[in-house]
Amino acid sequence: MGELAAELMALFADGFWRTARVARTRRRLAAGRPVRIPCSARTAGPGPRGDYVGGRLRIAPGAPSAVFTARGGARVVLAAGGTFHDPEPDTWYDQDWAATAYRPPGAEHPVHLQVDSRHLPLLHAALTDPRVTKDG
Rank of each mutant, 00 (worst) to 15 (best):
A23S: 10
A23I: 06
R24S: 11
R24V: 12
R24Y: 08
T25C: 12
T25H: 06
T25K: 01
T25N: 01
R26A: 11
R27G: 11
R27E: 15
R27C: 07
R27K: 13
R27P: 01
R28P: 00
R28E: 14
R28W: 02
L29G: 04
A30K: 09
A31C: 03
A31R: 15
G32I: 05
G32R: 03
G32C: 08
R33Y: 05
P34I: 09
P34T: 10
V35Q: 03
V35L: 06
V35F: 02
V35M: 04
V35W: 02
P38Y: 03
C39S: 10
C39N: 00
C39M: 11
C39P: 00
C39I: 03
C39T: 02
C39Y: 00
S40R: 14
A41V: 13
A41Y: 01
T43N: 08
T43E: 14
A44H: 08
G45S: 07
G45I: 03
G45V: 10
P46V: 13
P46M: 11
G47Y: 10
P48K: 09
R49P: 02
G50A: 15
G50T: 10
D51A: 15
D51M: 12
D51W: 03
Y52H: 14
Y52C: 00
Y52Q: 00
Y52V: 02
G55C: 07
G55A: 06
G55V: 04
G55K: 05
G55P: 01
R56M: 06
R56D: 07
R56Q: 07
R56I: 01
R58W: 01
